[in-house]
Write a protein that binds this DNA or RNA. Structure first.
Lengths: 183, 183
DNA sequence: TGATTTAGATGACGATCGTAATTATACTTG
DNA sequence: CAAGTATAATTACGATCGTCATCTAAATCA
């Protein structure tokens, strides 16, 4: 049951794309290989042919999600826009297409070194992205610290806003954090 | 195979305690009923006798963890101590005994209503705990907003500090957030 | 173009998941 | 105090998990 090289590449890409969405929606340990491959229209065993193991697929899927989101956010220039977009209801309600840092952070400590390396690199990229958009008056080191603290706020806010059961409280979390960060 | 009422209560308590630790360490969907009951020295089926389902046990375990942590943190009075303790390396490196909000937040959106209700109540408790420790000069509403934003920072920082692979970056996250919050 | 190699999807496998029927014994009550 | 009842733990069950051997067809080269 072998397919053409082109088709195989397409299958791989489709698995990666669906996987990057699924793990953000259902979590890493909450997504079985069955779901991962079925979303791409194949039987679950094909994951092993393409990636060798679930762990490897997760590594690639995390990298895929981070790269895609990084590119998307690189097109936002003003810091206030960056913050507003991140703390929007739209972002909160769409974890599958949202920030992979926020969606996966709690599971990362239990993942393979490869996953954690990619996650750390992704976080570093966001830090410099945000730091680079800040006023140039202050020193780079202080700017990085400020960016670091801001990202912690952003991630914490979106994660909590998704977790709570009360829509009003959820909105309050986003609003209060936006106010504090000046978005 | 039945045991005394006292012993059964002890077993239940032991399962709850171990469960509240395990889910913080391994995640909710990452902890099987086998692990949950084995940690309490019993076979996995006993979970069903005591709690009816895994979901029910998780509800109780989340409530248990939140109650225990809430009481522990209620003994800290100064805001700066609260922040310092929360953002300490000790807290970062001990998720099983640490803040359940930070440990579970990412999985909460996918849990039962009961779990999310308990989580939301727990977050509300922390908000008022922190808000109550702030200067009384500003209005209660503004104080709550400030507390809300602070908690988002705290949670985001500890979660990211646990996730990254680089100890220096991890320390930086805690330090930068502490600086920004004035802990 | 036909034989050989290689890559990729399938289906079968053991392990582990959560649940429910079974069993044994502590409580209850006549 | 003995017989019946209720309850808690064990054990067995189907479903799903992740992995790997198998098979098929595309790619390679004479």
């Amino acid at each position: 049951m072998r397919v053409s090289k082109l088709q195989a590449a397409e299958n791989r890409e489709r698995i990666l794309k669906e996987a990057s969405r699924l793990i953000r929606e259902r979590g890493i340990s909450g997504t079985g290989v069955d779901a991962l491959t079925e979303a791409a229209g194949m039987t679950h065993g094909s994951l092993y042919s393409q990636f060798g193991s679930k762990e490897r697929l997760i590594e690639d899927a995390v990298a895929y999600a981070i790269a895609a989101k990084g590119q998307e956010m690189s097109e936002v220039f003003a810091v206030s826009d960056y913050i507003s977009k991140y703390l929007s209801a739209k972002h909160r309600d769409m974890p599958g297409g949202g920030c992979p840092i926020a969606a996966l952070c709690c599971e990362i400590p239990r993942q393979s070194k490869g996953v954690r390396d990619r996650f750390t690199a992704g976080l570093r990229a966001i830090i410099s992205q945000l730091s680079g958009r800040m006023e140039c008056e202050i020193k780079p080191r202080q700017r990085d610290d400020k960016a670091l603290a801001a990202i912690a706020s952003l991630v914490g806010a979106i994660v909590l806003a998704r977790a709570v059961n009360d829509p009003t409280l959820s909105d309050d979390i986003l609003r209060a954090t936006k106010k504090r960060l000046g978005g």
